[in-house]
Structures are given as structure tokens and as C-alpha cells.
Design a protein around this nucleic acid. Structure first.
Lengths: 238, 238
DNA sequence: TAGTGGTCTAGACCACTCT
DNA sequence: GAGTGGTCTAGACCACTAG
């Protein structure tokens, strides 16, 4: 909350969530907001820009900023979010079972990644359980160059909270692919799949703020439980 | 190209694509770029901000802007893009077969959409064929309120080009969900699926710049050909 | 015509990185 | 200490929407 514009962003987002600015209504104009918050118009515009990309509002030239009806998108599913964060924001009755922590090299061919040398990593395999049903099998490869050792308790809780909170790593961006594949026998058993049922595989590479490659992740989802929600803007930069 | 910052964005993006600014190198500093382009620093920052969100660069405080290695992401798969645009940017050997154009009401329950009244629409069903294989079955419901009639030739070419180019509609944002489902018999046949093979279903609702709901779309993908690629930034607004 | 958002400017101070 | 990006300001002009 140290920046003015992020403070304003949160204030406006709160007021939208609590319907102080109802869906379909217009926010005060940018000049009015600038007066309200005692700041310049460009700073207001930064806050509004963040609200725009997060789907809270739509700006209409000559008219104003309309509040959108997107309660469903209060949680950022399409971005980078950890299971723990998702769990908390959705109040799911879920748990995590750590199946394995050990040193392994990253299976580069799986991730279609070109590298001259092997990448040493800590391999963490975890099963996500929601309402007593196994839903997702997560396989993380955290590169030794960035994190040398991972305590068991951390894997059972949240890797991201540990990396960002304790280690001060700044996770910045990721590439992600979603495909449908035939499961291995192990996956079939762990996820309690029916025979010949396929799985949804989400593979991602995560990078730090300084562009260091940091982590490979493979998430195996039960197809009947998989649901990816996205909010996208059509940005044609003319 | 009328804005300064979008002109600068395109110039820089071109130079990155053609390796005039090679991967891993630093762009000139913001003040240098401001001098180079004869503009103010804030304008440069807008251009760099667009490069950032599109995955061209990573900004590092105190150091500069690094060029990223994301050739794969030159096309915006995670945003809103039409099949025609994708086809052109990827030079695929593909075609479209129009199966049906007729008036229908939107099947609201399919899209989990609440509405008091029925929504009249033009229903367009099209099969996308790549290398002689059926890959995707697209079902579009274009609301009559926005577009009253759709010529056959348009459906065979590109709906988006028609809406934006001819009709001047401004497509702005969309919500999207991805799930895995059992296909109907019709879908099994059209997509030449094996028995018991599931399909990937992408359902979206598209909105115009003035927040008018405009279109519902259902895309049925062959699971073995489905590949969703995404670039995401972790944005924690503190 | 008045009000709105979109763009742009020329400054300023700060926190950070590197040498 | 010099250079970098991050934030912020107080103006300005424009294109668009409305009554």
C-alpha cells in the first residue's frame, strides 16, 4: 500500500466489491477522483488502468468508467496463482498430500525446453484433494540454482508463500501450455481415473523478476474436474 | 499508428523480432529512448509497458529492459483472436466449412448465463479443417440486437473481420471457460473421434467496447489437437 | 457547449544496481 | 556517485458523447 495508485486501486476495488459503486453505474470522472483522493489525474488513471485489466470496469470514451458484472473473476485464475491462494480465496474444503521430495534433473523433453546442460532441481510431487476426492497431481521442479533445499513442511503448506515470503524471491511471469493426454498407470491410480479416461496437463515455466528461470511445473488434472476460467481483452495496438 | 506510443511500440517490437535488439540484451534506457524518438519519458514508458504485457521485455529496476526469448508467443493465443487471424499468423494449411447459418435462441443454460428473456441470435456452425483433418467445431451465437443478418460469404471467411471492418463494431473483452466433456454423437462424427474420446470445450462470451453483450461461442476441440498457450504475469497489486 | 476519457509534456524525487 | 526504472505532478490539447 505504499503507492498512491495502488491504494486508490484497492479502495475502488473494495467499493465495487461491496456494491458502493453498483454494477452498471459510473465511477466519478477522472478529474473528480483526482480531487477526491487529492492527487493528479495521471495517478488516478494508473489505478483505473489496473481496474480495467482486472475486469472491474470498462472505460467508455466521452462517457466514463462503468462497473462490470464480474464477481466470478475476483480471483485470478488465468494468471499465476498458487493452489493455497486459490484455496483460500474460494474457501474450498481441500488438502494437500506430499508424495515425494527428492533431487532430480528436469525432464527437459517433457517441457520442450532446449538446454545444453542438465538442470538440477528439487522434485516435489503433491496430490491435491478437494472434498475427499483427488483432483490434481502437481509435479514441481524447483531449480537448485535458486533454491537449494525445500523443507517438507513447506511443501505441505505453500511453496509460493515460502519463496516470496521467506526467501524474498520475486516471481514475475510464466509461460503455460494446456493439453489433453493419456495418463500413466501411476496417474490413473492416484487420481482414481476410470480406464481410458484422459487427463488435462498444464505445464508451465516460471521466471523471476530478473528473468532467471526458476521452476518447471506439471499439473495433471482429472478431466471431469478441470475448469479454466479466463478474462481477456482484445488489444490491438494499432 | 496515430499515437506516438503505439508507433514506438511497433518500432521496438519489430526490432526485437528481427534481432536488432537481440534476446538477452538491454534496450536503451528510457531517457535515451525519449531522446531517440524525440518524445517524453512517460510516452516511452507507455510503449515499454505494452511490450512488457506482451512478453517482449522484462523491466529490471536499476538495470534496464531486457529482451525476452518468447518467439513462441508472437501470436496472442490467450487473448481474443479469431481463427482467421491465427491461421494467417501461423501460415497453416487450413480451411473452414460452414455447416449451418440460421436463427436460434441462445441456449443460456449451456453458458451458465442468467437472463429473464430469451436472446435472439444468428447461429453459425463451422468446422475448421487443418491439413485435411477436422480439428475444431465452432458454434457462434451472434445476438440480433447487434447484428441482424450475416451473409454466408462472411461466415466462410471471417466473422471478426466483418464485424470490426465492415460494421465498425469494437470488440473489447471476453470471458472464457475451458472444460473437458463427453461429445454428442454429432460431434463425434464431425470431428472423426474415436469412441469414448472426450472433447475440449471452450465457451466464451464476448462484449463490445460499450459493454454490450454481443456473442456467445462454443468451440469443440479434438483433444489430441488441443493446445492452449498462455503468457501470464504475476500481478500482486500491493 | 460542457464534460468525459486519451494522449502528451517537462519537469521532479525516490529506490535500486553497479562500479 | 552515476545511471536505471518507479512514481507523481500540473498543466495542455484532442476526440468523443451528451443535452
Amino acid at each position: 500500500m505504499r503507492n498512491k495508485y495502488s491504494a486508490i486501486y484497492h479502495d475502488l476495488a473494495d467499493k465495487i466489491i461491496h456494491h458502493i459503486y453498483p454494477v452498471g453505474s459510473y465511477l466519478p470522472s477522472e478529474t473528480q477522483l483526482a480531487q477526491l483522493y487529492g492527487t493528479s489525474r495521471e495517478t488516478i488513471r494508473k489505478a483505473l488502468s489496473a481496474l480495467l485489466t482486472n475486469g472491474f470496469i470498462q472505460k467508455i470514451r466521452g462517457k466514463g468508467s462503468v462497473v462490470l458484472n464480474l464477481q466470478r473473476f475476483n480471483f485470478p485464475v488465468s494468471g499465476i496463482t498458487s493452489f493455497k491462494e486459490l484455496n483460500q480465496s474460494q474457501h474450498m474444503n481441500s488438502s494437500t498430500k506430499v508424495l515425494c521430495i527428492e533431487d532430480q534433473y528436469v525432464p527437459l523433453e517433457k517441457f520442450d525446453y532446449q538446454s545444453d546442460s542438465d538442470l538440477a532441481a528439487t522434485y516435489v510431487e503433491r496430490l491435491r484433494i478437494v472434498n475427499d476426492e483427488p483432483i490434481v497431481l502437481d509435479r514441481d521442479y524447483i531449480l537448485k540454482d535458486c533454491v537449494s533445499k525445500i523443507p517438507y513442511e513447506v511443501a505441505a503448506d505453500s511453496l509460493y508463500a515460502y519463496f516470496e515470503g521467506k526467501l524474498g524471491l520475486k516471481i514475475s511471469y510464466a509461460t503455460k501450455t494446456i493439453t489433453v493426454e493419456h495418463p500413466t498407470k501411476e496417474e490413473t491410480q492416484l487420481l482414481a481415473l476410470e480406464p481410458h479416461q484422459d487427463v488435462v496437463v498444464v505445464r508451465s515455466q516460471t521466471y523471476l523478476e530478473d528473468t532467471t528461470l526458476f521452476q518447471f511445473t506439471e499439473s495433471i488434472h482429472r478431466p471431469d474436474k478441470f475448469n479454466f476460467v479466463d478474462f481477456a481483452r482484445r488489444q490491438k495496438i494499432n
